[in-house]
Structure formats: structure tokens, C-alpha cells
């Protein structure tokens, strides 16, 4: 029982950390892509956002990783809204039918 609790507490911080690191990676990817005007055919941007949001939700239930999870989830949601708004604005500016 004690061992199970110990294992649980040892790994309960992981989802939050994964969420925050994924969020940071997606932010870093966005920065590099935007500042270098680089366009890659395969963009892991959306994948990182999804990982940060889902692991952020999981991490919120763990006391140990709540801080990381809430940051990761917050950044993930921000980037998801950012992506939707950017698509909306880009399509609206200098619209070509």
C-alpha cells in the first residue's frame, strides 16, 4: 500500500511537466517559424498544443503538478485560440476569392 502510494506520488507530477514542456516547445516552434519566416511541410505545432492541453487537464487532478499543469493548459488554450484567430484574420485580410 505504502509502495503504491509512493509510486503514485512519484509519477503524479509528470502530466503537468509534460503539459508545460509541450506548451514551451509549441511556443518555441511558433517563435522560430514566425521570426525566420520558415514554412515546414510537417508542423508539430498542433501536436504540441494538443499534448499540452490534454496532459494539462490530467495534471490538474494531481496536487503535485497543478502549477505546471495550469501553466501548460493555459498556454495550450492560448495557442489554440491564437491559431483559430490567426486563420480567421489571415483569411479576412486581402481576401482573394
Amino acid at each position: 500500500m505504502e509502495l503504491a502510494l509512493k509510486i503514485k506520488s512519484k509519477f503524479s507530477g509528470i502530466p503537468g511537466l509534460v503539459s508545460l514542456i509541450s506548451a514551451i516547445l509549441s511556443l518555441a516552434y511558433f517563435n522560430i517559424e514566425y521570426l525566420t519566416k520558415m514554412n515546414t511541410s510537417f508542423s508539430p505545432f498542433i501536436f504540441f498544443i494538443m499534448v499540452s492541453v490534454f496532459s494539462g487537464i490530467v495534471g490538474l487532478f494531481s496536487k503535485q503538478s497543478r502549477l505546471y499543469a495550469s501553466w501548460g493548459l493555459g498556454i495550450g488554450i492560448f495557442l489554440a485560440i491564437h491559431t483559430v484567430l490567426m486563420i480567421f484574420f489571415t483569411l479576412g485580410i486581402n481576401y482573394k476569392p
Binding site: 502549477l67 501553466w71 484567430l85
Partner: peptide, 27 residues
């Protein structure tokens, strides 16, 4: 570690925030 990760996240959020504000302004 927490300080480093959160500071890094805040720094990396500057570009997307400015981009969004710019597109919001022009759009």
C-alpha cells in the same frame, strides 16, 4: 526549474501575443 520554465514560457509568449495584437489591429 519552475522559475526557469515559467520565465521561458513568458518570454516565448511575447511574439505570439504581439502577432495576435497586430493581426487583430489590421483585421
Amino acid at each position: 526549474t519552475t522559475n526557469i520554465l515559467i520565465s521561458l514560457a513568458i518570454l516565448l509568449m511575447i511574439v505570439p501575443t504581439l502577432t495576435l495584437l497586430t493581426y487583430f489591429y489590421y483585421g
